[in-house]
Design a protein around this nucleic acid. Structure first.
Length: 781
DNA sequence: GAGCACTGC
């Protein structure tokens, strides 16, 4: 769910870089928007940075002396005289203006209902259709957490973040803007899970609101599992809350509310049969049991109440505020989606009124560019037939599209022009395209699925789900009534699955299992999950964790596992970091550079034939390393980091994504900081690391040997017919054409990913020596 | 000869 209209423009990755700018802007929101900082004595309290705090307070003793509750904007609304010397008149005005908007939201009449139900029950499932506004705490994406925090902060007449008296803050990766006085903290699910490492009982919170549950990311499923344990009293961590109750609100656009409730009730039922959480093998046993038994009666009573509670008392439904969208199906199925889309686009263009842009959902980048070409080729013929038609502007939209081109969809089109946006799934959740009244839905999307038996991801075109189809259709009704053409029959629609399969059922579980174990879950198989992965997938992940040394022989997490879990990386990449920090390998700074790249999007931009300048080819060639992609990436990061005058120009010159590189730099800084904290890296090494020497042959080998530690499954050897086959499983793999080793024959390869698209590809590939594998085995023995 | 979309103190 999201806040209405203008604030819901989740611009996706393009806004990543703006976080800091926005955070800064919001610290100064009071004076920035009113434009009268000097003349006003009333707006400084929240406008000052923390170092000016004392100054701000001495200026306004009358404010400081007010009872804290009266500093709220309610006072400003109810008592204009007092409001005169309260901070941020502009914020109050903004809050008042927003209040009128809020009162029109579909959720507004339900406010007291929500409060009452929360008094009666500790669990509340709230379902609301997209378009009804509400407050949330956890969000699946960073941009959403930040923009919602800003919006709610405005509604409350507060400033945002760290400044004194701010009621709202947010915490996302690379950007922590949480103040001591914050009453509401917006954060990503990943961040909440990360907080649970040091505070598994979430003692900081009395209420956790989980938004966008219908998206069913791995992180949301894990979050719900931990919350169920805390709220029913089955979690070992419960005693740490010292009887402080926890309220949980679950918000979802489409999730199956009955099964959500049933799952929570099942937790209460289990808690009833085993009220005291299983004793951990720690020294805190006695202390824990004491505080637990003191709560037994209370917990049991609450659990009984929850089990017997009428479902209706734990559930609220809010009607949406979408405009109506008419659905039009094909009467006959089509074999050629692109042809069908092309016909529909021109039909809409001829028959439907202006304004009204068209949004087309296709499967991938190829299909998007193909359709774009077809439209542009067809335009001249259409204009010859009807010269009076408005113009058509075709805009592609997919994640890998450069920043500036993605931005075009937000710009006003020239007069008398209709936009046609041809998009992948990015427009379904991540980016809201404005101005759309007509949607064309291919009914297909690419879905990534992990195959545990062969340790391979596949990325294949599949029919979408009913909820996905509804989401796509809804994109036509955000601003006015619209129409949605589905390029499939209504009979086809009925064959679609209801909801998209939860990510946890189609992903490598090693990261999720390590997340559980590091937060005190001994029995990962018994951990409450809304969807249970197969035993095979669990087994494969446990074996994988054992192979990298994160588990001891008895299957419990060991010290290495705890170290790996603290790093914001996959377990495999975390293991590589640990290996690189060893005295023997001694290449941590280099490895951090490479790992940082693997943890963000592709840094290399595609060099297109038509615009390729010879100097770009040469610049790229200078970065290229014969050992393969790992060392080439290292050369790119080092080259970028060493550029002190104009990194953007350097990136352009090498056809490397400046935005991706900024993310790499952020990740690198974060990983370095964590390595210092984990004592894997000394501060002096970190400080000296800026003068990077040329990577010697020996260091290069050590770097690859470190990667072998985390990726020993991802090795293939050259076989006599010239192809590569994996060491484990003898699977055929081809080197991906994006790799520097594409077309080369070496003894053996080590790769970062193994993905099946139209065949099995290894991506992020380097050459290794087979005898390194023997070294690896003997050093482990 | 090729890249659905997210995310992490």
């Amino acid at each position: 769910m999201s806040v209405p209209d203008h604030d819901t423009e989740k611009h996706g990755q393009k806004r990543k870089r703006e976080h800091k700018a926005h955070a800064g802007e919001n610290v100064h929101i009071g004076d920035g928007r009113s434009g009268n900082k000097k003349s006003s004595t009333t707006n400084t309290a929240s406008a000052e940075t923390p170092k000016d705090e004392s100054k701000a307070r001495t200026k306004k003793p009358e404010f400081k002396n007010l009872p804290k509750r009266q500093r709220s904007t309610d006072v400003q609304r109810n008592n204009p005289k007092k409001a005169a010397f309260l901070p941020n008149r502009s914020l109050a005005g903004k809050s008042n203006a927003l209040l009128q908007v809020r009162q029109k939201l579909p959720i507004w009449p339900k406010a007291s209902d929500i409060r009452n139900k929360l008094l009666e029950s500790d669990v509340l499932v709230l379902t609301a259709e997209t378009g009804s506004g509400r407050v949330a705490v956890t969000q699946p994406r960073r941009v959403a957490a930040i923009s919602l925090a800003r919006r709610v902060s405005d509604e409350m007449g507060s400033s945002l973040g760290k400044s004194p008296y701010s009621k709202v803050g947010y915490s996302v990766r690379f950007d922590d803007n949480v103040g001591r006085d914050n009453k509401i903290k917006f954060l990503t699910e990943g961040m909440l899970l990360q907080e649970m490492l040091r505070d598994p009982a979430l003692t900081e919170y009395s209420c956790v609101i989980v938004d966008e549950v219908h998206e069913r990311s791995v992180n949301v499923d894990l979050t719900l599992g931990f919350l169920r344990g805390l709220v029913t009293g089955t979690s070992d961590a419960c005693s740490k809350r010292k009887g402080k109750p926890l309220k949980v609100v679950i918000m979802s656009a489409t999730a199956d509310t009955e099964s959500l409730l049933h799952w929570f009730k099942q937790g209460y039922q289990e808690a009833k049969s085993a009220p005291i959480a299983s004793a951990p093998d720690s020294v805190q046993n006695s202390d824990k049991n004491a505080s637990n038994s003191s709560r037994d009666g209370e917990v049991l009573e609450a659990n009984d109440r929850a089990i017997n509670e009428d479902d209706e008392k734990m559930l609220i439904k809010v009607k949406g505020r979408q405009h109506t969208v008419q659905t039009i199906y094909l009467t006959q199925p089509t074999q050629d989606i692109l042809e069908a889309a092309l016909l529909r686009i021109f039909e809409i263009h001829r028959k439907e009124p202006m304004p009204g842009d068209i949004l087309v959902f296709l499967t991938g980048q190829d299909a998007v560019t193909d359709l774009q070409r077809s439209i542009e080729e067809t335009i001249p013929a259409i204009i010859t037939l009807d010269s009076g038609l408005p113009k058509l502007q075709v805009l592609p939209l997919f994640a890998a599209l450069p920043q500036a081109q993605q931005q075009l969809i937000f710009e006003a089109s020239p007069p008398n022009t209709r936009k046609v946006i041809i998009a992948t799934n990015i427009a379904e959740t991540s980016i809201t395209v404005p101005g759309v009244r007509f949607v064309i839905d291919s009914g297909k999307a690419k879905i990534k699925r992990y195959r545990p038996t062969i340790g391979l991801d596949s990325l294949l075109v599949k029919p979408i789900t009913k909820s996905s189809a509804e989401q796509r259709k809804g994109r036509a009704g955000r601003e006015a009534a619209g129409k949605c053409w589905r390029l499939y029959t209504s009979k086809d629609f009925e064959t679609f699955e209801k909801d998209t399969e939860p990510e946890i059922l189609r992903t490598d579980l090693s990261s999720a299992l390590l997340t559980m174990m590091a937060r005190g879950i001994d029995d990962v198989v018994g951990f409450p999950l809304l969807a249970k992965p197969s035993r095979e997938a669990m087994g494969r992940a446990l074996l994988q964790l054992y192979k990298i040394g994160a588990l001891s022989d008895d299957g419990h997490i060991n010290e290495m596992g705890h170290k790996i879990a603290r790093l914001p990386l996959t377990p495999a990449l975390g293991r590589v970091i640990i290996a690189a920090a060893s005295e023997e390998m001694d290449c941590l700074m280099h490895v951090i550079d490479i790992v940082s790249c693997f943890s963000v999007e592709n840094i290399f931009l595609e060099i297109k034939d038509e615009d390729s300048r010879p100097e770009v080819g040469e610049a790229r060639a200078r970065l290229s390393r014969r050992q393969g992609d790992h060392l080439t990436i290292l050369a790119a990061v080092q080259g970028y980091a060493a550029e002190n005058s104009d990194r953007k120009a350097w990136a352009r010159q090498h056809m490397i994504s400046h935005r991706a590189m900024q993310n790499v730099m952020d990740a690198r800084k974060q990983i370095c900081a964590q390595c210092v904290q984990a004592k894997l890296l000394s501060k002096t090494t970190l400080a000296e690391a800026e003068d990077r020497e040329i990577v010697s042959e020996n260091t290069a080998n050590n770097i690859l040997k470190c990667f072998l530690r985390g990726f020993s499954n991802n090795v293939a050897r050259l076989v006599p017919d010239g192809s590569y086959r994996t060491i484990h499983g003898n699977q055929l793999v081809a080197i991906h054409p994006s790799s520097g080793l594409f077309g080369k024959k070496v003894e053996a390869i080590l790769y970062n990913e193994f993905v099946f698209t139209n065949k099995s590809y290894a991506r992020g590939v380097s050459a290794i020596q087979l005898n390194w594998l023997d070294e690896l085995i003997s050093s482990e023995a």
